[in-house]
Amino acid sequence: MIKSYFSAFRMRWKMETQYRGAALGGILCQIFFGLILVALYRALYAGRPQTLPLSAVVSYVWIQQCCFRIVTSAESGILDSVMTGQIAYELCRPLNLYGYYFVRDMAYKIVGCGMRAFPMLVFAILLPEGWGISAPASLPGFVLMLLALFLGLLCACALDNICMAATMKTLDNRGVASMLNLLALSLSGNILPLTLFPDSWQKVITLLPYAQMLDAPIRLYTGEWAVAAAPRVLLVQGVWAVLLIAFGAFLWRQNLRRVIVQGG
């Protein structure tokens, strides 16, 4: 069981290292987007400074770009295998399918993210003052951020799996999946950092599952959320992780009970 989970990581690692060119392209692309966004927020701040310091927003942008992979939905391979009926083979394997896909997705995110984040962080640190990422607000804040990042990763994978279960149910990988993906992009702060949303909205948005993926860890890093508030943040994340995983597992069990195998 555990072994097959490890092999999912190994396979992903092999695949990612094979497409180093693509990863490099992705990094350049992400850096370019980061620079554009930072330039935009700098210009906006120049006109009207906000209570939240510019450096926090800039750091927000860079971490967001580094960990972009966490938010985007599952590797297309999994969805394809659901659509084409390839999943029939997987069903024949002595595995807990939910766990298997969960780990596969996690491997996709961790390996992909790890490979891209490091060089990008180096770049973001080397950028001149006001353009690059600032140091974490405090050391405990940084440690808490790593913890929050892990919980966020669990939430992200659980959301992906729910999305996959929905795909399996409707046998349509474009409509449902793209809709959920969009929801994820807007509500996770990818289009506009959640910290720049109207303050009244933030009270609600930060409690939604999408905000747990990246927004919560980033705010712990920039110190927008103090160390003292961390237990509450982590609790919200943990509760969501449990709920989402439970719901996803439930959906999968439902689906597998009436196995529909498309294609063939």
Binding site: D172, G175, V176, S186
Partner: peptide, 22 residues
Amino acid sequence: YPASFILQLCSQAVMLGGELLA
């Protein structure tokens, strides 16, 4: 696949709508 098509039409609108919102 009419249902899927309508969903995709909506998702296109939502996508740019999200950016407009930003």
